[in-house]
Design a protein around this nucleic acid. Sequence first.
DNA 1: CCAATTTACCAAAGCGCTTTGAAAATTGCA
DNA 2: TGCAATTTTCAAAGCGCTTTGGTAAATTGG
Lengths: 350, 350
Amino acid sequence: MNLKELSDLLGLSQTTVSRALNGYPEVRESTRQKVLEAARAHNYAPNARAKRLATGKAMTIGHVLPVSKKHEMVNPIFADFIAGAGEIYSDNGFDLLLSVVDDDSEEASYRKLVSREAVDGLIVHGPKVNDSRIALLRELGVPFVVHGRSTEIEAEYSWVDVNNARSFQRLTEFLLDLGHRRIALLNGLADMDFATRRGTGYVAALEARGVMADPALMFHDEMTEKFGFETARVLLAGDNPPTAFVVSSIIPAIGVRRAISDSGLEMGRDVSVVIHDDALSYFSNEGDEPAFTAVRSSVRQAGRHVAQALINKIATPGAQVHQEMLEAVLTVGRSTGQAPALRQALEQEK
Amino acid sequence: MNLKELSDLLGLSQTTVSRALNGYPEVRESTRQKVLEAARAHNYAPNARAKRLATGKAMTIGHVLPVSKKHEMVNPIFADFIAGAGEIYSDNGFDLLLSVVDDDSEEASYRKLVSREAVDGLIVHGPKVNDSRIALLRELGVPFVVHGRSTEIEAEYSWVDVNNARSFQRLTEFLLDLGHRRIALLNGLADMDFATRRGTGYVAALEARGVMADPALMFHDEMTEKFGFETARVLLAGDNPPTAFVVSSIIPAIGVRRAISDSGLEMGRDVSVVIHDDALSYFSNEGDEPAFTAVRSSVRQAGRHVAQALINKIATPGAQVHQEMLEAVLTVGRSTGQAPALRQALEQEK
DNA sequence: CCAATTTACCAAAGCGCTTTGAAAATTGCA
DNA sequence: TGCAATTTTCAAAGCGCTTTGGTAAATTGG
């Protein structure tokens, strides 16, 4: 069923039927009702391809998911982020175009999406320090919003980010307050912008208390369970092991927890762990006593905000850039306790 | 830059330029080269919207991701599956349209995608027992492939599935061989087809050894870490606790592991755990000594197979249905050992 | 009651491509 | 050299919609 058939059926012109369906005022209300009813009865919906050509709008937002054929890693927060963004798209009549590309052809993929005019706007995921995609998209003149920011880029662009520096500063301060001094940091890959900011916050907190940041306690890698497990296992078996861990995601933290219990230690008593919690749906860290002390910031909520910002940007092209900082909430769980040395000192006092 | 501009620039007709770009034979090789070069120089790519209208093909595959606004759960295997499928789409010039919808309007979403002619084919995720989407898509006459199967549907349809019954039978047999008799099953939601099949395999293995399946040891829920943790904690604290767990995914298994160590027990010695491992990229269970004994079947690989099957189906509409069974591989890890009673008996013998 | 609006509808053009049917240019062979 | 066969190129139609620039019918006002 197409527009012509529907209008022939109704004895109306295509113009009138189109206008009736799209809510234009120059059509009598009784006519509109007839049209809407006929459309429903025949399960008619305007052909998306034709509509897009006629209007010059794709009504589509592009997301590029780079996958490395080498290590086969898919960012685990991606699904939750996209679920949040997708809700907003659905509510606003946009489609979501997901382009899965090899990570070395990511820029080409953006270019192609724009020159094909397949999308009205793009989301940039996981910006690196001085990320080249931002300049590219500005040059291409396509609306875009970054989830995160990119240090060293002074040009204006729209972003929604969580305050990573502040979050990690608070996590580290929390441990310092409990008497910890040897605090390991398990961070994301070094070229990721968020990892840089997290590192900065961690170092700032230590230095504010006169504790030297020890490079031997700072690690960068993909945030897998394995990374957490192996790093913690080595550290805990070594000389002068850390008494606490700051971990960039719940996933490596699960590995850390495993290493702790494999070492015959108890998390929250012998070793403390704090995390950044993206509120992944299948790893709830909420409730009365969350497993981990954490700064929490829902990545799904971030997806909603990013999507809404982009849609607004598309609707009003001349508008200001949208820059939005989300603050993470610190919640205390069962993974932290006083540093062992401090605890022993206090116990002896009694 | 559009086709008209490009052809004016070259002093050729739109026809010739179009044919040159699309590899038709009726254009001189030297002309084709000029056209290709000019297209590259001006970064021209045919407008996707116009091309789709002209060809009548969307060159797009639809995936519907239902999200429940209530429990905010996103299927964790989704990202890996889609990464696999997306690779195949990219290789074949297809776009991936992801529709995120409230789970009670999933059917309406399929209908809409089809009547808008926004997609050439659809993937069905997470089929339930007697899933209504299969009849719907058959009725709509749109090519589709199901990831999984749906019991009680006798009509023919294309699917790619892992042999869930056989996998869980083998896992259970493995535990029985080690002397376990009280074996708990932590399964997915009861209405999911895969969960039914897994339950069948588990029960079949037990009954083959004359062990009665105990309903008090069989659990259905969303496969979160929390589900694993809380179920195992209660069971281990109760009378007559199980000595082994069969768990539907590595995520609840991580919860089970936590409950075991919280109970002062050791996984692999006091309590055995076997899992179905989807080979999620951030939870590697591979290497020399995987943490868990598992049947492994890469969900990313499944995504590739499903996508390829659908593309083939679209290319040759009249073809047979595609029905493909993937077999999972059993690998022994450190999470399993002889049942404590058996081990004690053997130790006494010495 | 009739001119001036306003309302309700329509025919046709256009979005940027592909594809059909025909014309122009080139080639082969007598 | 001349003409048929072949190769190469082109003009125009069509994909299914929106939107422009109307016109006829209904309504209003003096």
